[in-house]
């Protein structure tokens, strides 16, 4: 069950990145025909990001402590002290950036160049920092794995 929660966190995280990429491309081609779709997808990005936060947050608060103890006894202490600590706090800001997306989408993206530019910047940051979060998650998992591996030659 614990691993299922963690996998669900990674899954919703990847889905929000994909959805943000979708909004980026749709904004490049913003017209009256796809304006409502951009708004719907922007809400989906924010929703998936909040879902990722609640699922990951639940796992972090309830289940992470034993894993952290293993990591800190292992050779990849940095996977917690740098990657987890940075990920858990940068995510809080990323959450707000994602929440901003549907607010920006309330503007007329067809006529406002500024709104389109803002959408492109925000979705770019969401995708890039989202990938960073994903990579950090993989490093944290590896940090736990190497801590549990038998010592070579032992």
């Amino acid at each position: 069950m614990t691993l299922a929660i963690l996998l669900l966190h990674a899954l919703t995280g990847m889905l929000f990145i994909l959805a943000a990429g979708f909004v980026f491309v749709d904004t490049l081609n913003a017209s009256a025909a796809n304006l409502e779709r951009i708004r719907t997808m922007s809400r989906l990005v924010a929703g998936l990001l909040w879902l990722t936060y609640f699922i990951g947050g639940y796992w972090y608060v309830v289940n992470y402590a034993p894993e952290k103890a293993f990591i800190m006894k292992g050779p990849w202490k940095f996977s917690h002290s740098f990657f987890m600590e940075t990920k858990e706090h940068v995510f809080l800001a990323l959450l707000l950036l994602g929440t901003l997306l549907p607010i920006i989408a309330t503007n007329d993206l067809v006529t406002s160049k500024g709104a389109r530019k803002l959408m492109l910047w925000v979705t770019t940051l969401l995708v890039l920092v989202g990938f960073g979060m994903d990579g950090a998650g993989a490093i944290i998992s590896l940090g736990a794995k190497v801590a549990l591996l038998p010592v070579a030659g032992g």
């Binding site: 929440t99 503007n107 500024g114 709104a115």
Partner: peptide, 12 residues
Amino acid sequence: TSTLNAQTKGYC
């Protein structure tokens, strides 16, 4: 010369 609505500017 902003073309953005007040909510967007405030929350940005």
